[in-house]
Design a binder for these strands. Sequence first.
DNA 1: AGTCCACAGGAAGGGCAGGCGA
DNA 2: TCGCCTGCCCTTCCTGTGGACT
Length: 410
Amino acid sequence: MWKVEAVSKVDNIFSQYVQKQSVFKDKTVLTSNFIPEKIPHRSEEITQLSLALAPMLKGFHASNVFVYGTCGTGKTICSRFVVNQLEEAAKDGQIKTIYINCKMKKVADTEYRLLAQLLKELGECVPDTGLPTDVLYRRFFENADSKRQTLVLVLDEIDALFKKIGDEFLYNLTRINQELKQAKLNIVGITNDLSFRDGLDMRVRSSLGEEEILFRPYNALQLKHILEERAKTGFETGLDEAILNKCAAIAAQEHGDARRALDLLRVAGELAERQGDAKITEAHIDMAEQKIDLDRVIETIKSQPSQSQIVLHAIIKLAESRKKTTKWADARLLTGDVFATYESVCKENGIKSLTQRRVSDLIAELDMLGIITAKVISKGRYGRTKEISMAISNSHLDRVKAFLAGRFSP
DNA sequence: AGTCCACAGGAAGGGCAGGCGA
DNA sequence: TCGCCTGCCCTTCCTGTGGACT
C-alpha cells in the first residue's frame, strides 16, 4: 500500500504516488457522464430519437419527446449524444441545444432559476433573484428570436421540476413557439418516473409527449459488454472475466443500472490502487459496493439542513432505546414519539424546535431520500400516524450515528 | 352506525434575504 | 431610498382519514 513514509522538505510526500504505475489509463471513461463514440445496445432508441428531431435540420417542426426509463438505462447519455450530433449536422449554428438537469438544487429547481439558467445559456446575464418571471420570459423570447435559431431544450429529471412547481411552467414552455417569431423551441424531457406522465395536465401531456421513447433496463450480458468496452480504454491492463461478470451481475440485479456497474468498476480500481495492488480482484468489488452505498448515505445526510439531521438523530436515538426490547430492524416509531424525542434533543442542544407540522414534512423528506421508511397507518381509535423505521443497513449505521452524535450530543 | 383519536397534509400567509429599477 | 419582485423556510389553521371502540 502507498504510505507516506517520511515527512521532509527534500522528499515530496506525493513523489511515491507520482512514480507508481496507475491501474487506470483514462479514468474519465469510467464515469457515467462520459459520452463514448459508440453507445452499445441502444441503437433502436437512438434511431427513434434522431427521427423525431431530424425535421428541424430542414427547418420543419419536430416533435417534443418524452424519454422514459429507470436509472442507468442510458437515457441521458443517448439524448446528449443525439443532440450533440444534431448540432454538428446543422449548418452555421442553426441549432443550439441546452441541457439542464432539473434536479440540480439552486440551479434549475424553480421556474425563476430555470428561466435564468436558460438565459445564461443564451449568453445573457441574469441575477439569481429579483426580477419578475414575466420579465425573464420576455427576455428569453427576445433573445431566442434575435438569434433565429432552433433551440433544443433537454430537461433531465423533468419529474423533479414538476413535483416542485407543477406543470404550469411546462405548459408555458410548450406554448412558447406561438410567441416566437424567428426561432423555434423543441423539448426533450427525460424522466425515470414512469408514472410521471399521468399526473400532467391533458394539454401539457399531449403537446409535450408528441413522441415517447422507452429505455428498457440492460441485462447482465449487455452490461458486461458495456463494461468490457469502457475497461479497454479505462484500465492499463485487461480485467478478469470474473470481475466484469460480478459487476454486471450486481448492476443487473439493481434494475440493469449501467451507472452502478461503472461506479463499481471505477471505485474498485481506486481501492486497488490505494492498496498497491496491480490488479482488481473480486474482494475489491465487494469493498467498492460497500463504499459506494456508505458514501451515498453519508453525503445525503451531510447535505441535509440541521433541523432535518436533528430529526434523524431523534429517530435513531428513539430506535436505540426501543432496541433493548425489540430487534433494531423491527423498531417501529410513531410521529408523536419522534417529535417528543426531537424536542428533547433540541432542548439539550439549545436549539429552537420546529412545529410538529414542519417535523412531519422533514420526516417525509427523509423517507423520500431513502434514509428512513415512513408509512401512514391507522391505529383505529388511537388515531392516524406515520410508522417510521430505519432504511439504512446495520453496517452503515455506526458511521451515521457517529456523525450525528458528533453534531448533536450535549 | 356513530364517535373519536392522532395525526396527515393542503392552503394561506408571515418574515427574511437579496436584487432590480425608478 | 423605496417599492416591488423573487425564493425559501416556517407557522397557523383547517379539513380529511381509517379503523378501533362504544
